[in-house]
Each structure stands twice: as C-alpha cells, then as structure tokens.
C-alpha cells in the first residue's frame, strides 16, 4: 500500500535530485533526515516492508511519501527517483542491484554487499561518479579508510593493517547484527584497496554500556621503519577533508608507536539526526553516502537556482 502525504511546502523540487530510500531501519531513517536537509537532494519515496516501524512513523510525520512494498514500489513508480539509497541488508541488496541497474537508477549501497564500486568520499569520490552502483563499504570502513589511506601516502610499505571498531549496542539494528560476517569481509577488502596493505583484519565490538559509548575505531599498522612525522602531515590533510562531511570525526590518540605497531584512534560523534550522537557509526556512513549523492546531483544537474 501507499500513503500519499502533501508535499512539504518550500523550495521547488525540480532542481534537486530525486532520491528514494530503501529500508526504514536506523540507517534509512537517519538518511531521510539528512536528505530533507540537503540543498541538492529531495526524497521521492521512503520504502520498507512495515508501515508500523518507528522509521515509517517518522517519515510520515515528516510528510514524505512512504510505502511498504519495498523495491516493488520503485519498480511500479520509476519516476519517483533517479538515485536509490539501499539501507536494507547485504543479501537484499544483491537482489535489488540488478533491478536498479535495469531501471537505470544510480544505486548507493549502504550494506556490505560488495556489489558496486567502493567509495570513501575523502579519497576517491570523483572516481565513483562514473559507476552506476557505489558501495559505501561499512561504518568501520568509513572511519578507518581515510587513516589507512594516509598510511599509504606516508609509509614506504605496509605489511598489515587491522581495524578495530567499537559501537554502542543500541546503534546496531537487526540487519547490522545479521551482517557481522559481511561487515568483516567488506571492511577487510576496503583496507587492502585503500591502503595497499598486504594483509588486513577487521574486528567489531558491540558495547552495551549506558550512557552509550561513541563510535570509536582503532587503526593498528605493522610497517617497516615507521615514519610518524610523515603520517602526521598526511593525517592533517585527510582530517580536514573528512571533517568537511563528518563534522564529529576526530583523532583522539596518536599516531604513536606502541608494542611495535603504529596506533591511531578516532572517535566519531554523530550529528544526532535520528539516533543520538553516540551513533557515530550510523552518522559516518550516512554522511559519506549523502556527500556522494550530492556530488552526483551536482554532476548531473545544472547548479541549483535560488527562487
């Protein structure tokens, strides 16, 4: 079924890129709030499977077109969007990807399905604009890969990188929990691709402490003859670029050498859009997805005109 709610009054929509959000969980709902705030994007449809989910209720309260028909809604209403954010699960995205491809929709995949081109906006966003399916890797990937890339830029040769993320239990919804294996495999693939490291390992911890912990990620690297000043220099630039789209991203420890490895620790506090600011994991992947979609919008469209 479909519920049509009067469009939000305000700016005319034709200059903005129409997007649909697939998946009404934590990720999808937080994305929606970010889309509604964007100068480049507008939400054509918010679709999931369950109209009584908290995410759906939120979307309805915001006056967005919602549907419980999931991907079928987009198939039946091809005009609802040009770009689709997929915030379902890895196995669902593997089914959605060929459908979206056939329909000529750009897909920005927030699941660890490993279908599209891996994208870290601060590193390779421009290269992703030619792809029809862009994969946002994982939250741990978005937090760690800018650092992994800074390691590549500053170190002669990297033997091994390990990325350990801890997130608040409350910020991990059912799909995240079911996808832990995919999270690990996809993050490891991302580490190798964005750092040139020979070997990689990803670890994810869920911590139920109250008050909730902020997302924290530690990047451990084994490097022959570490160059710490070089890394500090590279990090400065990288940090600036990441903070442009994720304001709550900061290095809290290091880079330093402990027990023969380079240790850098980042903390991400979120914008607090749908879930509170502790859910930096959700915020960082969504901020990256929005930054990428906006880049698509700027690329596809004439500049937004003011009215």
């Amino acid at each position: 079924m479909e519920i049509q709610v009067a469009a939000v009054p305000g700016k005319p929509s034709f200059d903005k890129l129409r997007v649909a959000i697939l998946g009404s969980g934590n990720i999808g709902t937080d994305l929606l709030i970010k889309v509604l705030r964007s100068e480049y994007l507008q939400c054509g449809a918010f679709v999931g499977r369950n109209l009584s989910s908290p995410g759906m209720a939120k979307a309805m309260s915001l006056g967005v077109t919602v549907s419980s028909e999931s991907i079928s809604y987009i198939e039946k209403h091809p005009g609802c969007c040009e770009l689709v954010f997929d915030a379902t699960s890895a196995s669902d995205h593997r089914q959605h990807a060929p459908i979206l491809e056939r329909m000529g929709k750009i897909a920005i995949d927030l699941t660890p399905a490993q279908v599209g081109r891996m994208c870290v906006p601060s590193v390779n966003m421009r290269d992703c604009l030619e792809a029809s399916n862009v994969n946002m890797i994982t939250c741990g990937g978005q937090a760690s890969l800018p650092i992994a890339h800074a390691l590549q830029l500053s170190q002669a040769e990297i033997d091994y990188i390990e990325v350990v993320s801890s997130i608040a239990s409350r910020s991990a919804g059912p799909a995240t929990r079911r996808n832990l294996d995919e999270y690990i495999h996809t993050t490891e693939k991302g580490i190798k691709a964005f750092s040139g490291s020979h070997r990689a390992k990803a670890i994810l911890n869920l911590n139920p402490a109250q008050p909730c912990i902020n997302m924290q990620t530690t990047i451990l690297a084994k490097v022959e003859n570490p160059n710490i000043p070089g890394l500090q220099e590279a990090l400065k630039k990288v940090l600036e670029m990441v903070q442009a789209y994720v304001p709550g991203y900061q290095v809290i420890v290091g880079p330093l050498i402990e027990n023969g490895r380079i240790v850098t620790m980042v903390r991400v506090s979120g914008l607090g859009d749908y879930l509170p600011s502790y859910a930096g994991n959700l915020d960082i992947i969504n901020c990256a997805a929005i930054a990428t979609a906006e880049e698509f919008a700027r690329n596809l469209r004439r500049p937004v005109q003011s009215v």
Partner: peptide, 14 residues
C-alpha cells in the same frame, strides 16, 4: 568504570 567489554583491548592504550 567505563564498562569496557572483552575485545576492546585498544581502549587500554587510550
């Protein structure tokens, strides 16, 4: 005090 769980060994350094 911070209710750190098994697996969060990196927090020791912090």
């Amino acid at each position: 005090r911070r209710k750190i769980v098994a697996g969060q060994e990196d927090i020791i350094i912090e």
